[in-house]
């Protein structure tokens, strides 16, 4: 590759990359999630068996990652909408990105206990 032609953007580019990666991840999850929920049409046992695996510590960790992806995509999606529709959006895009990151960190901290608490009790006792 010729030197100096690779575009390396700043915050705006990386937030776009993260928005794209999280969006694709969520879509694949949603596909699987509709399939597992469809088991309620098979039998209560089939559904409960699969959901039981969702209550294991490893899947709890994956769930925490899913929550992280959804919260980032949702908050940053609102930022993208503000950039497009709010007349001052483009000027404040960077400030809005750091607000997104800040709110995301607070929400992720708040999600630790509800999402991972059960796994903690399974691993380390009550």
């Amino acid at each position: 590759m010729p030197a100096g032609t690779l575009y390396r953007g700043r915050e705006g580019m990386w937030s776009w990359v993260a928005h794209r990666v999280t969006g694709v991840l969520i879509f694949f999850f949603l596909f699987v999630h509709v399939l597992d929920t469809a088991l309620v049409r098979v039998s209560p046992e089939a559904y409960d068996d699969v959901v039981a695996t969702y209550k294991t510590p490893i899947v709890a960790l994956l769930e925490y990652g899913l929550v992280a992806a959804i919260l980032f995509h949702a908050l940053n999606g609102l930022r993208v909408i503000a950039v497009d529709f709010w007349s001052k959006g483009p000027r404040y895009q960077k400030q809005m990105l750091w607000s997104v990151v800040g709110i995301w960190i607070v929400l992720m901290a708040g999600a630790v206990y509800p999402v991972l608490g059960h796994a903690y009790r399974v691993l380390f006792g009550e």
């Binding site: 309620v40 209560p44 409960d48 959901v51 209550k55 509800p114 999402v115 608490g117 059960h118």
Partner: peptide, 13 residues
Amino acid sequence: LVLDGGVSKVGFA
């Protein structure tokens, strides 16, 4: 995932 004990309450019922 958050209210009423998170996923641990989810099941057919």
